[in-house]
Design a protein around this nucleic acid. Structure first.
Length: 336
DNA sequence: TCTTATGATTGGGT
DNA sequence: ACCCAATCATAAGA
């Protein structure tokens, strides 16, 4: 226990006043008497350092060894650690355990939803499905339509993952390095395991803040990609022929009242593999455009009327008339 | 390249 | 909430 003080005061009485290596203001203490005492100690130590010789180095080495091997050393370090722990706790307060950052959670959720941070293939399908629904593409051209989107998304995903891995690796390397360093130092200065843990936490927090930046920029990239590829207006695709025929068939066979009910819209949407909203859009467009130029659509109207008539005839010859076809108007309709 | 067709959006009305 | 009308932006055709 008394080794340390002896070491500190082994060469007492040699003041530091006027020492060439020290700036003047260091010597003119403004603190109280306690500060003066401490400065005196520091002066002693400095003086010792200045007068170190090979011999004294050996001597110090021997002393250090002796100190390390002292039977009371663990106890001393324990006490010192305890004192340190208390001061640290009083300084830092109770803000150790912070709740998970809501913004980080939001970013995580979004990345997961976009299939960037999720499992390799499964996550992507959700975004692809959303893309399909938004663009209104159907069937075969669907996959071709979004292969580009998916390629870009997976590119983002790859960059994200490699970066994340890099950060993680760097974090782990740094953490182990610091831990080793602290463990090494704990032999010569009091460091409690708790302190090491705290240091590790600090490092992790730093790295996770870097990760958050990565996540944020990834999110931005995905949003830009989405807005570019999924803006249906930009990437408008015509409905396929079959869907258009189904819609036209309904329209011309209900020319007197071309307003499908919610249920009818749903059925049409299912048949055409498009959304109900798209069905509504189609009918809205069709009605207005038909009304604007009935003449232009006359041929089309006749064609569909004839076709439905043929269908009806065929169906009735088989004994089962179609449910949906009630009547066919070839004349000008009642749109107004 | 210019024109037309077409799906989606917007704004106003009921 | 639904519709109409105008408009946008792109696809498809000439």
């Amino acid at each position: 226990m008394d080794e340390q003080p002896r070491l500190m005061h082994s060469h007492t009485g040699v003041g530091m006043a006027g020492h060439p290596g020290l700036p003047q203001h260091m010597q003119e203490g403004t603190g109280g008497t306690d500060g003066d005492g401490r400065k005196q100690d520091i002066g002693d130590i400095l003086q010792q350092i200045m007068t170190i010789t090979d011999q004294s180095l050996d001597e110090a080495q021997a002393r250090k060894h002796a100190l390390n091997c002292h039977r009371m050393k663990p106890a001393l370090f324990n006490v010192l650690c305890e004192i340190k722990e208390k001061t640290v706790l009083s300084i830092r307060g109770a803000q150790e355990e912070e709740p998970p950052d809501p913004q980080l959670m939001r970013l995580d959720n979004m990345l997961l939803a976009e299939g960037v941070s999720g499992p390799e293939k499964g996550g992507g399908s959700a975004a692809a499905a959303a893309a399909a629904a938004a663009s209104g593409g159907v069937g075969a051209d669907n996959s071709a339509e979004h292969s580009d989107y998916r390629a870009k998304l997976s590119q983002i995903r790859q960059i994200y993952h490699t970066e994340l891995e890099k950060y993680e690796q760097a974090c782990n390397e740094f953490t182990t390095h610091v831990m080793n360093l602290l463990r090494e130092q704990s032999r010569t200065r009091p460091i409690s395991p708790k302190e090491i843990e705290r240091m590790v936490n600090i490092i992790h927090r730093k790295f996770s803040s870097i990760q958050m930046q990565l996540k944020q920029s990834t999110c931005e990239a995905v949003m830009i990609l989405r807005s570019r590829f999924l803006d249906a207006r930009r990437k408008r695709r015509n409905f396929n022929k079959q869907a258009t025929e189904i819609l036209n068939e309904y329209f011309y066979s209900h020319l007197s009242n071309p307003y499908p009910s919610e249920e009818a819209k749903e059925e049409l949407a299912k048949k055409c593999a498009i959304t109900v909203a798209q069905v509504s859009n189609w009918f809205g467009n069709k009605r207005i455009r038909y009304k604007k130029n009935i003449g232009k659509f006359q041929e089309e109207a006749n064609m569909y009327a004839a076709r439905t008539a043929v269908n009806a005839a065929n169906a009735s010859s088989h004994g089962t008339p179609p449910l949906s076809i009630s009547h066919c108007h070839i004349d000008a309709p009642s749109l107004s």
